[in-house]
């Protein structure tokens, strides 16, 4: 043994440090606060923001206060929660499947949740029983995660996963198209399109109240997975030998995904690629640790969705761009880039 390698007692500095990555979390939080405020103050209707805020706080029913409270606040809150849910789910799925291409949209969870919501809406259940909408979304998401699991298997290769995703996505798309085809009137068809395109426009506090507890619950479930996902980066056998209960992990992941994505999609429609882009960009910044990536991706997802939802208000043409359309427009090229990079690594 040479003396070079053994200079003095090892100091795993990064391990002992409690502050690793905290600047990232602070930065993301500040970013979110900034864009949350911007989301409240920017829109098609010009608004004297501080005036409206003052009126709102004093309980005056000025037009500005109403716009702020009834329209912009639910919208910003939903962007925050839906984005956090999608980012978190993407990070959890990627950690569990050990596959950087996993994402609720790509593996068909969002489409199935949308189908669940569409069916509930189609049969008029939503009007009778408000919780039916998120329940339908959750049922759809649950079936999709389960199907994907059965099709791709636990050691799912990238290929197996994508194929399973294509299968689940096509089935959900076919059934949604059927519902669209059989839609009793043009109004129903328009409503169904809402879930397909994904949007946060015209949402109210009813939607927030409906989805928020479920998303929070799903998020909490997923945030507990960090340790197990860290262990899983050494493979299933080693993780198991380190005391990870793989069965329980799988169950919690499926439950968390179904709760979170199901609730998110039922109020905002299918918003793709947030769960793909965000964990991917943040992973190197947290030292590739799945456990740290979970909260980081929740914040990152919220940030990206807030920004995107502001951007769609300023499309220089025609009607407002749908949020899901916008994220797909930036997300799909990103997916291209990932596939090309994976190809280079594999071949």
């Amino acid at each position: 043994m040479t003396g070079v390698a053994k200079t003095d007692r090892l100091q795993p500095i990064a391990l002992a440090s409690r502050t690793q990555g905290s600047w990232l979390f602070i930065g993301l939080t500040l970013f979110i606060l900034l864009f949350f405020a911007l989301s409240l103050s920017l829109g098609r209707v010009p608004l004297a923001f501080f005036e409206a805020l003052g009126a709102l706080l004093e309980g005056e029913d000025t037009l500005g206060a109403i716009v702020l409270y009834e329209i912009r606040l639910p919208r910003a809150l939903l962007a925050l929660m839906v984005g956090a849910t999608l980012g978190l789910t993407g990070a959890a799925l990627q950690g569990y499947l050990r596959n950087p291409l996993a994402e609720p949209g790509i593996i068909g969870v969002s489409a199935s949740a949308a189908l669940g919501s569409v069916l509930v809406f189609y049969y008029g259940l939503a009007a009778v029983f408000p919780l039916a909408l998120p329940l339908g979304g959750m049922a759809g998401a649950f079936v999709a995660v389960l199907l994907m699991h059965l099709l791709a298997g636990r050691q799912g290769s990238a290929l197996g996963l994508i194929l399973a995703g294509v299968a689940v996505n096509s089935l959900a798309a076919a059934l949604t198209a059927l519902a669209l085809n059989l839609a009793p009137n043009p109004f129903a068809a328009t409503e169904i399109i809402f879930w397909l395109l994904g949007s946060l426009a015209d949402r109210s506090f009813t939607h927030v109240a409906l989805a928020a507890p479920l998303m929070a619950l799903g998020g909490l479930v997923m945030l507990t997975l960090g340790r197990a996902l860290d262990a899983l980066s050494l493979g299933e056998e080693t993780a198991e030998s380190l005391g990870v209960d793989l069965g329980a992990l799988r169950l919690r992941l499926i439950l968390g995904t179904a709760l979170g994505v199901g609730a998110a999609v039922s109020v905002a429609g299918a918003i793709g690629f947030v769960g793909l882009i965000v964990p991917h960009l943040l992973r190197p910044l947290v030292g590739h640790r799945p456990s740290l990536l979970l909260p980081a991706s929740a914040l990152g997802g919220a940030a990206l969705t807030l920004v995107s939802d502001i951007a769609v208000r300023f499309a220089p043409f025609g009607p407002e761009l749908r949020l899901g359309v916008f994220t797909a427009l930036i997300g799909a090229p990103f997916f291209f880039y990932l596939v090309i990079r994976l190809r280079r690594e594999t071949w």
Binding site: L15, R98, A231, L234, G235, E237, L242
Partner: peptide, 27 residues
């Protein structure tokens, strides 16, 4: 009580070596 070292090391993410060693403390 029992540590298992499989034949083929699976390493999914480019974690730092000391982070990988630290995973041994999970139990």
């Amino acid at each position: 009580s029992v540590a298992y070292l499989p034949q083929l090391a699976v390493l999914q993410w480019p974690l730092a070596v000391e982070r990988v060693v630290a995973l041994g403390r999970l139990p």
